[in-house]
Amino acid sequence: AGDISHLASIVILLHKIYTSHSCRGISFKTQALYVLVFLTRYLDLFWHWVSLYNTAMKVFFIASSVYVLYLMKYKYRPTHDPSIDTFKVEYLLGPCLILGLIFNYEFKFTEILWSFSIWLEAVAILPQLFMLQRTGEAEAITTHYLAALGAYRALYIPNWIWRYFGDNVVDPIAVVAGLVQTGLYLDFFYVYFTKVLQGQKFELPA
């Protein structure tokens, strides 16, 4: 369900861009961070086979995130306003690299990159949420995208509990980062459920 929610979020994002011929309201910085997240995490495509499903999803996430960047940077460039997308990504990249160096399962390059990608994913939404706060409102379709994207990691949580008891396996890095990631959406979810799903416009209190 988490993976399908993630997949749905990307389909909704592409649908929003195509139908409105615009990337208004979408943070280029957040989208660029996702490209970095997927490239650093899915490097193991080259040596670690899990399943056709797993490989297909990895390829889709890499390809779609690069494609969204292309759409924002070239095809719909005039519709993107950098002056409201001002979050400093250096404040995310530095700490995530340090977290990756401290918390990893083996001190080697690919494992550090994997851990870095987990931490970076947890906070990659911040430029987008920062932008949303600056503008104070959003199109309904953009909020559906964010809701599906936020629900995705939250839906992993029951799976982690299941695996803790069922398979006696726990991934503390993914769990802690996943809880942080989900936590960052709580404010958004509150407004989404109380306004957008009640048929009102997404507007933040002044």
Partner: peptide
Amino acid sequence: NEHTSTKDEL
């Protein structure tokens, strides 16, 4: 419980 990275997840 074994602490390990769940590399079969996305």
